[in-house]
Amino acid sequence: MHESILYRQRMSAGRTLTAMILLLAGRVATPDAQAHGVHAERIEGGQGLRVVFEDGAPMAGAKVKVFAPDAPEKPWQEGMTDQDGRFLFFPSKTGVWRMVVDDGMGHAVAREVDIDEHGHAHMDDDHHHHHHHGPSAIIAGLGFIFGIFGLWALFRRRPARPQA
């Protein structure tokens, strides 16, 4: 009884040793075939956006969804803007790619980038989406508002004042 336990232990120790030797041999013989081997190379470029609020503050940590040209429903990639409100991705084919950036608080921007057959990117017009908040817009808005209320007051008051 006692001996058979010892024997079994020795057998199992022998099997473990054999397995370790085989594993080691495999490692040395085929370094490239390792499941955990990772290689990194430097890349540059990509397509992307920088998103800022109208006061110039970057929209940091906002959720980004990228939609491939042939699949407008299901996101092809999801990510997040960095501290400076930037996000980059790498289109894998030609066509119009759509990026949607959403800060989760009701602010969102959607932009499209068109990749042509030469790999060149064409972004939809920046001026289209940019609003000027200069003094002229403020003055224009105030003018409209007071104008509307002025006309409203004029038309409301008129019939209600029969002169004696």
Partner: peptide
């Protein structure tokens, strides 16, 4: 009728107020 000027003034104030920003961390 008499409320219309007051309403106009507050509409104008509301319109401009949105340009006064307060930044806290990543949100604006």
């Amino acid at each position: 009728d008499n409320d219309i000027p007051k309403t106009a003034l507050l509409t104008a104030a509301f319109f401009v107020a949105s340009l006064v920003h307060v930044r806290i961390g990543p949100t604006s």
